[in-house]
Design a protein around this nucleic acid. Structure first.
Lengths: 239, 239
DNA sequence: TAGTGGTCTAGACCACGAA
DNA sequence: TCGTGGTCTAGACCACTAA
């Protein structure tokens, strides 16, 4: 998806036109006009097919909408399915300040369940990272994450990242797809102690298998205090 | 998105090419070759830009994948985010036989919460439908659905539909987008009795606001037995 | 070297919408 | 009537891949 630049540093013409139009219309109200194709032909001195290629990309992207006989307009933003976000982003969305306390971080040999989930072999090295995660300084969630050590060289050196997803992002391993499962349960003894709730209090169990390309980058199990956390999911995609 | 046919009944050229290629490659293994662009130019006697327009559509659709210098190939099917499914589909996916017992169905005046969720005014008529939903003949979930009466003329006549989503589908109101929220709790007395669990047992509370186009078609609150139900969600979209 | 997709040109005619 | 997007032509050169 990277944009190709020719050797002298100038972008391809259709890219130039596309980014010009994007910068013109981003932020404009839905329904407001974009430049007409022939206007862009004159402005850039390119062929109309080149302009159409640029506009096509923005239409596919959902930024523009064409109406035959009328013109090209800023499209109503499409409602998108939930993005894949980690704990910090989830808390930020709720206006809460997230922080985490690492309870355990070490290299382990993958057991059968973790190995299968990470698409590794039993006994392969995995990073096991257990954190008590707080929101506004009060316990919210206990998370056990398992990571493929091979994909994360130097992960345990140089200090743990504040945010796993930011670190994955920096490595180009931001998950693009995830399978989550969610169930309700009651807190066991250890969990109750760490989360500071009564044994038998309602908790939400959340498992995730996060994938980037063809590689499984994270497998995790979390247990959330049900009195503090509701999961939000958006499904489908609006036209 | 309907295909345009000219008056003599022949499709546009790029549509002809596109559908020819589609019929050639659908069902073929990912990675197998599609015809080259120049081959299609000769076969159909059209310009290359026309062929590219046809192929572009199939690439955007996710059916084909272009590899510069190599050719055009059948793409690996993209993993899609979770579809919006109702109880019957969810149970079928788990290999369970769903059935439902209507506990209550009537027209009510919308209270403030339901009115806001359905984008109606307080006091507008809504259909309230409460069902005990079973899987393999054993209680799974208690669901209260609220529907916009105006969108569903004759809904209460002629027998209730077995599946709400099938009925919406038949009316062209299949939800295309939904906001769900999920939380954990423990069963109250009435719920426990209907679901045949102990008071205080873990339950999963699920709320949905389902939208078709610009109309809210369904608002519901469900409570699932946590010992029988785990929610599955797929997020993002694989490249 | 031959074939592929990626980019680009300089025109053309059409159907449709608005004035 | 005029401007819009939709379709289409018949070429061209490029970078890349594979043989």
């Amino acid at each position: 998806m990277d944009e190709v630049l020719v050797s002298d540093g100038r972008a391809l013409k259709h890219v130039q036109v596309r980014e010009y139009v994007r910068s013109l219309v981003t932020g404009n109200a839905p329904g407001s006009s974009a430049p007409s194709e022939r206007e862009l032909v004159h402005r850039f001195g390119v062929a109309r097919m080149t302009v159409r290629q640029a506009m096509d990309a923005l239409v596919v992207e959902g930024l523009l909408e064409r109406i035959p006989g009328r013109g090209t307009f800023v499209a109503r933003p499409r409602r998108m399915p939930s993005p894949i976000s980690g704990f910090n982003e989830e808390m930020a969305r709720r206006g809460l300040l997230a922080d985490s306390q690492t309870l355990l971080v070490r290299v382990e040999q993958a057991g059968p369940g973790v190995a299968r989930a990470l698409s590794l072999l039993e006994g392969d090295s995995v990073i096991h990272w257990r954190r008590l995660r707080r929101a506004d300084a009060s316990p919210m969630c206990l998370e056990d994450a398992y990571l493929n050590e091979v994909l994360l060289p130097g992960f345990l050196l140089g200090g743990m990242p504040t945010s796993l997803y930011d670190d994955l992002d920096a490595r180009g391993l931001r998950p693009t797809w995830a399978e989550d499962s969610v169930s309700a349960d009651v807190a066991g003894e250890e969990e109750a102690g760490l989360l500071e709730v009564a044994v038998g209090a309602a908790v939400l169990r959340h498992s995730r298998r996060a994938v980037c390309g063809s590689q499984v980058v994270e497998v995790s199990r979390s247990v959330y205090r049900a009195d503090r956390f509701t999961l939000w999911v958006q499904l489908g995609e609006d036209a």
